[in-house]
Amino acid sequence: MNYWQDLDILDDGIARQQWTQITSKTSPGIVDKHVTDVRKVREGLGLPPSGGTPAGLSFTAVVKAALMRSMDDSGDVIEVWMFYDRYATLPADKAADNAPLTDQEDDLILTWEDGDWKVTEAPQYVDHKYGPVAYDPHSTFAFDDGWREVVSQ
């Protein structure tokens, strides 16, 4: 979950460093794809396409639940689904984030590589992604499908 919670979504330079660190050797195109996504977000906010995060602005993602399943017999490739909220912290002289992204779902495919979990988009795994039952903390169907609440400290 730390991958998702710690990724920079506005600084394209930091995003490139982060994605380079967490990307599998099998999927080098992921880095450029996600840096492009950061630049699109910047442009959507009226910022120049490249640069740092404006002073005093930060984002926090809180993963509330996760589902993990193996995509191969070895357990070395897993698909992780996350249910999360993302909040902006604005400079002290600005209003609070009145429109946080809540109840978002996204997934990553991770492969065990060089002693760490790395993000992969290798076709043999992407082609076999599984869309889980929607998460609801009170749903027995979601629990049976493998969703588990994440406890944050």
Rank of each mutant, 00 (worst) to 15 (best):
Q18E: 02
Q18F: 00
W19N: 01
T20H: 02
T20C: 01
Q21T: 04
Q21V: 00
I22S: 02
T23K: 00
T23R: 00
S24V: 09
K25T: 15
S27Q: 09
P28A: 04
P28F: 03
G29Q: 14
D32H: 01
K33N: 03
H34F: 07
V35I: 06
T36H: 09
D37G: 03
D37Q: 05
D37V: 00
V38A: 00
V38T: 00
R39Y: 02
V41G: 04
V41N: 06
V41A: 10
R42T: 06
E43L: 09
G44Q: 03
G44M: 03
L45K: 08
G46F: 07
P49D: 07
P49W: 02
P49L: 01
G51S: 06
G51D: 06
G52Q: 05
T53F: 00
T53K: 03
T53L: 01
A55W: 00
A55G: 03
G56T: 06
G56C: 07
L57N: 03
L57A: 08
S58W: 01
F59Q: 05
F59R: 01
T60E: 12
V62K: 13
V62D: 14
V63D: 09
V63W: 01
K64R: 15
A65Q: 06
A65F: 08
A66T: 12
R69P: 07
R69E: 13
S70K: 14
M71G: 10
M71C: 09
M71L: 15
D72G: 11
D73L: 09
S74I: 13
G75I: 12
D76I: 07
V77W: 04
V77D: 09
V77K: 06
I78L: 08
I78C: 04
V80C: 09
V80E: 09
V80H: 02
F83R: 07
Y84I: 03
Y84S: 09
D85M: 11
D85I: 11
D85T: 11
D85K: 06
Y87F: 15
A88L: 08
T89H: 11
L90P: 04
D93I: 00
D93M: 01
D93G: 06
K94P: 01
K94G: 02
K94I: 05
A95F: 06
A95T: 12
A96S: 15
A96T: 14
A96H: 12
A99Q: 08
A99G: 10
P100Y: 10
P100C: 10
L101I: 05
T102C: 10
D103W: 05
Q104N: 10
E105N: 12
E105C: 07
D106E: 11
D107Y: 04
D107A: 05
D107L: 05
L108R: 11
I109T: 08
L110Y: 06
T111M: 15
W112S: 13
W112N: 11
W112E: 11
E113M: 13
E113Y: 12
G115L: 04
D116G: 14
D116S: 13
K118I: 07
K118D: 09
T120S: 12
E121M: 14
E121S: 15
E121P: 10
A122M: 08
P123Y: 11
P123T: 14
Q124V: 08
Q124L: 03
Y125W: 15
V126K: 11
V126T: 15
H128T: 14
H128N: 15
H128R: 15
K129A: 12
K129D: 13
K129M: 14
K129T: 15
Y130F: 13
P132Q: 07
P132K: 05
P132L: 05
V133F: 07
V133H: 10
V133P: 02
V133A: 12
Y135D: 10
